[in-house]
Design a protein around this nucleic acid. Structure first.
Lengths: 151, 151
DNA sequence: ATATATCAGGATATTTATATCCTATTATAG
DNA sequence: CTATAATAGGATATAAATATCCTGATATAT
């Protein structure tokens, strides 16, 4: 299952995908759009930035935006930024020396579940999740809307 | 993913499946066989008993044993005794009103992952997990081995 | 330069999962 | 009846996930 942090991260990414090209959105705006607690989201956005999925800009008119096109960012990238996806590779039965060559009684069955999950993560992209009646809509409330020189 | 409690529970059930018919094993013995902390396991065994998967007997010669044949106890029963399996039904995208008729953008893809997981739980039975090179082997250390009247 | 907006990130709080400890209760043996 | 074995289950401790709060650093506008 996705952790709550992972869901937050995906929703934030989808919100950012709804921005005008080049536009930045502040944490608070993303938080409102994605329905995620503001201060917690700031941690998550930081992790996404560290991973290189979003870019940040400080100061007036700054905020966050996607670092590349939403169609090029998989859920795997997003989720693995905030949780250790690799733990799905651990033995479901808790056996220390479980492996393909020395499988536990659950090994192959669990492999199918993991494949389904990894398939979802690897073959789904942020760009596919926008719109669609989703509640993740980022709207510019028009509060500031500064034009930046460097754009 | 299975929680650690769930893994503990499955391992304990497999250990109990290795008992002689009618025999009880004390918590400590199950804990050693399954490699689970004793006191924590006692909580888990209690939950399994509440669910009706194991029977307990207090007093000298008592302990726990399976309440029915290991081939009739699914992993779903076991896992759902110690964690809320139903949370896999919640929307992976965190949408409040996500449903089959009003699906979020992840709804159907997530459904496939859930189906794989539920399939594993529903179609795997404790009886299938015994032996097999698993480290969960319950051995009667012969410490006591009391014969009970009521058997 | 100064005021303001915004992220960066440390410190802390809350909640949940995991684990330990201890006493009460129940059963058996002698 | 007494001693002993074992679960029942409350109280507490630890660890990890989630969330909040606050200050410092950095960018912009005037």
């Amino acid at each position: 299952m996705l952790t709550r942090s992972a869901t937050h991260a995906v929703r934030a990414m989808v919100a950012l995908a709804g921005l005008e090209p080049g536009e930045y959105a502040q944490t608070a705006r993303v938080a409102d759009a994605a329905g995620v607690p503001r201060n917690y989201l700031s941690k998550i956005l930081f992790q996404l930035a560290r991973r290189g999925l979003v870019e940040s800009q400080r100061g007036l008119g700054g905020g966050f935006r996607l670092a590349r096109d939403a169609s090029q960012i998989s859920l795997y990238d997003v989720v693995d930024s905030v949780e250790d996806v690799a733990r799905w590779n651990e033995c479901a039965f808790g056996e220390k020396q479980c492996s393909d060559t020395q499988p536990c009684a659950l090994h192959h069955r669990w492999g199918r579940v993991r494949d389904a999950y990894f398939g979802l993560l690897r073959n789904t992209f942020v760009g596919e999740l926008i719109g669609n009646g989703s509640s993740v809509e980022i709207r510019d409330v028009g509060a500031l809307n500064v034009q930046r020189r460097s754009l």
